[in-house]
Nucleic acid binder design. Structure first.
Length: 398
RNA sequence: GACCCCGUCGUCUAGCCCGGCCUAGGACACCGCCCUUUCACGGCGGUAACGCGGGUUCAAAUCCCGCCGGGGUCGCCA
């Protein structure tokens, strides 16, 4: 039957074959062992109209919604369209807010409300979210669950902020008042969103799910949060990650990164975070940068190695630096500057050729936080440790 | 195919209802410059859009019609 309809270019729909069976006919079919379904008898030529809170006035014709639809299956279990109406009514639902893929269900549901003589709730059909290929967002487009974003190190407030902006923008008048005071025009706290949000301002057009802006929002929140709050987020974050952990044992913190553990105290931990937070995109990055500050053992990046090989005078710079560091009582930004200047004079190198070797010797990398800040944080003893390690590593590589 | 929804920068959008203030505004991304003897941060600046065609009008992104394009729904699934 269905195939025939499709062939003729007609939409598959119930033909009304058993719409008006007599008692005798029903009995006969029952005896044959046929189990009946219960269908909703559609009114003829009735317009079903509602004002959708997002899409505006929507109108369907009863002759155009697929024929008498099933409300109870032959096994006696009722179907969704029938059940939601009863359920929502019983729960005193006033607003039905859902994806626009439900638009075509709505006329059926409205008819049921009418048949029951129940109040019809307000409907709001939100546009669906599209993947990069503009089709309905699904698993094959990558992460789609909140859990995945959590475990990637996105803060809950970042996701909320991002999602709110996907298909919604604050009402101009309301927004203008507060926008003056805002640090950033599109960063919203939960409270602001609650204050500003209105279904009326939802854009009826579907939006593509592109997380570029989410990265920005997350960076922003991570930078602005106070350290205690950030710490709380980190504690939550490690719960969903096998490779990271933060244990508090008395005053010491044991930080697990991959299969290594580092001991430190909260004060140092906070200091380290504060120095590196401008580099974070996600909470995951916290650990990446922390590792650099918490241990003096490191490997030298390929590119860093390359730099040293192509700039042989680098070794001289590092040796000189080592010598001079040993002579200093304490290492801070000032003494660092002094040392660098004297190396510059004595070896006649400057710029990248002067700073890079030192950076590589201390971190094994070509980029990172500012050298003077790093050195002040490490202190003399650890700087010496690192330099020694560098020369040991160097021997291995030779 | 039928029915329905949608169509402003690469992306998220403001403006559209109530035509002139739109030479189309903002944000992210991108590019450039400045700051920094690296990178990032920060500051400044730049590239970039009304799907197309007809009307209506002195005037259209805004109103009307058609087309095109994209998406959704067509189950005894939810």
């Amino acid at each position: 039957m269905k195939k025939e309809q499709l062939k003729k270019g007609l939409p598959p729909r119930y033909t009304g074959k058993c719409r008006n069976l007599t008692k005798e006919e029903k009995e006969k079919l029952k005896k044959e062992g046929r189990k009946p379904v219960i269908r909703f008898k559609l009114p003829e030529n009735e317009k079903i109209v509602w004002e959708d809170l997002v899409k505006g006035v929507l109108e369907f014709d009863s002759s155009n919604i697929g024929g008498d639809f099933v409300i109870v299956r032959s096994n006696g279990i009722p179907v969704y369209n029938f059940v939601v109406v009863i359920d929502d009514h019983l729960m005193n639902i006033t607003h039905v807010i859902r994806g626009e893929d439900h638009i075509s269900n709505t006329p059926k549901q409205i008819l049921l409300y009418k048949a029951f003589n129940w109040d019809i709730p307000k409907f709001a059909h939100l546009p669906i979210i599209l993947g990069k290929d503009k089709s309905k967002l699904s698993k094959r487009h990558g992460s789609t669950s909140v859990e995945e974003f959590r475990s990637k190190g996105y803060l809950p407030e970042s996701l909320i902020n991002f999602l709110a902006l996907l298909g919604w923008y604050p009402n101009e008048k309301l927004y203008k008042e507060i926008s003056q005071k805002k640090e950033h025009p599109e960063i919203f706290t939960k409270e602001e969103l609650i204050e500003l949000f209105d279904l009326k301002d939802v854009n009826p057009a579907p939006a593509i799910f592109d997380t570029t802006k989410l990265d920005f929002i997350n960076e922003f929140f991570i930078r602005k949060l106070d350290l205690d709050t950030l710490y709380k987020h980190l504690k939550e974050f490690v719960k969903v990650r096998e490779d990271f952990d933060i244990k508090e044992i008395g005053d010491t913190l044991v930080i697990k990164i991959k299969d290594k553990e580092f001991k430190t105290d909260k004060k140092t931990f906070y200091k380290a975070i504060d120095l590196t937070r401008n580099y974070y995109k996600t909470l995951e990055d916290v650990f990446v940068y922390l590792k650099e500050l918490l241990t003096d053992k490191f490997e030298i990046d390929k590119k860093a190695l390359e730099f040293i090989k192509t700039n042989p005078e680098s070794i001289k710079v590092i040796e000189k630096f080592f010598e001079k560091v040993k002579l200093e009582q304490v290492l801070n930004k000032d003494t660092f500057k002094k040392i660098v200047k004297s190396i510059q004079k004595e070896l006649k190198v400057k710029g990248k050729k002067l700073y890079m070797p030192i950076r590589i010797a201390l971190t094994g990398k070509l980029q990172g936080l500012e050298l003077d800040t790093l050195i002040e944080f490490l202190g003399k003893e650890r700087v010496i440790n690192r330099l020694k390690n560098f020369f040991l590593e160097g021997e291995k590589n030779d």
